[in-house]
Design a protein around this nucleic acid. Structure first.
Lengths: 215, 215
DNA sequence: TGACACATACCGACTGTCTGGTATGTTTGT
DNA sequence: ACAAACATACCAGACAGTCGGTATGTGTCA
């Protein structure tokens, strides 16, 4: 069925098409429930191509997590939340941005590495670690802004920028879980409102303060 | 292998042994990666017994979510965090309790319905909805204490008890995801510290206030 | 009290399909 | 000509689910 056309579009693109298919199909069905044939079908390539590029299904999982790390880091680096010159405003803009991109179908805005890590953490250490690198690599980029904001504003408190960055990620990931369980993206957005309120509290943001330096 | 002894222990116990096996095995391996034979092996029953009690693997998934709802609601109802007479102290004690039970192996303290919902939300609406009922049924029990605390303390703010109860669940679930990705239970506890701080902020808890009315 | 009917609980061999993976071609750019 | 990038055919095992059967109650009526 739907044999890939001979003289198929861009020869050499099988690997990236498989990674894109993995990103989309695994987010919808999960890693274990996604078969190699599913991926080949979605990417319009044959099994020969699959095992030419990836030594095993597990190796594809690792590659998919790394692909996710690359593409998302590019996506977030190009996002507009970096614009404010004030570091705290960047942090709050990050949270607002994360909320703003929660639209449409669940499988399109949820996190590949969160989903995969949850599923394979005990059965595939390689995939788990690749997911961990992607996730904590991302939190590290936020951590820098949090740390800067803290210094700029002279904020004390018994918490670290690292832990707050990770907490932010936890709220996002947890929001995805609730959104899936309740079949309602609004549940993910809701938790980000609480996170926003919490961060404003940590940085003693008053009502008048809010638009003080808004890009 | 390991044939269940004829005259096996408690005839009639196959169903509950399968549900307990499902609870443990699925939390470790995920739903899709857990085979019916895995469950039969773990429960020491045969396939005949499995399909006598459950019409399909999916039906077992639904039953496992319902079993989880029953056993955890009993567990939390009996937990000591209900002791404080002050509602806010009960809420904070709940968070502390959730943190305290995060010990040992990941598969032993993480949430079955969170794991399953994340995995099957798009492929099995029946399991997803059963997971949702379990999860939001639990948040509803916390919501009551939050609402009472809010009235007792005359707290305003643009948030609802319902949303805060769900946010609490999101932080817990997100903590589990990070703990799995980082292979470190401490990551789940860490987020609960932030949640505790956030709730104290919402209720204007001062340092002196803390042990004011401690059970 | 016991015999018969019936239901529930379980057993384990079997089946057809699907799975990840392999072995061996064929095409294509350089 | 050569290697990389595919395609095709195939395989052995695992998979969910089936089915005919047995063991153990449970209700009923003489």
């Amino acid at each position: 069925m739907s044999r890939p056309t001979r003289q198929s579009p861009e020869r050499g693109g099988a690997r990236s098409r498989l990674l894109e298919a993995a990103r989309d199909v695994i987010r919808a069905k999960g890693f274990a429930a996604t078969s190699v044939d599913d991926l080949c079908g979605a990417a319009a390539v044959t099994k020969g191509a699959f095992f030419h590029h990836f030594g095993s299904k597990e190796a594809l999982g690792v590659a998919a997590a790394e692909f996710w790390a690359e593409t998302t880091s590019g996506f977030f680096a190009a996002a507009p939340y970096h614009e404010p010159v004030d570091a705290l405003q960047r942090v709050l803009a990050y949270v607002a941005f994360r909320k703003a991109i929660i639209v449409g179908e669940l499988a399109q805005f949820t996190c590949l590495v969160g989903t995969m890590a949850q599923e394979v953490y005990a059965t595939s250490p390689d995939i788990r670690d690749a997911c961990g690198r992607s996730m904590f690599g991302h939190t590290a980029t936020l951590e820098a802004d949090i740390e800067t904001a803290r210094r700029e504003r002279g904020i004390a408190g018994d918490w670290t920028a690292e832990s707050l960055a990770r907490h932010t990620q936890a709220v996002i990931q947890g929001g995805f879980v609730l959104a899936k369980a309740g079949n309602d993206p609004g549940l993910a957005r809701e938790s980000l409102d609480h996170l926003d309120r919490y961060i404003r509290h940590l940085f003693h943001v008053t009502e008048e303060d809010v638009d003080e330096r808004n890009h």
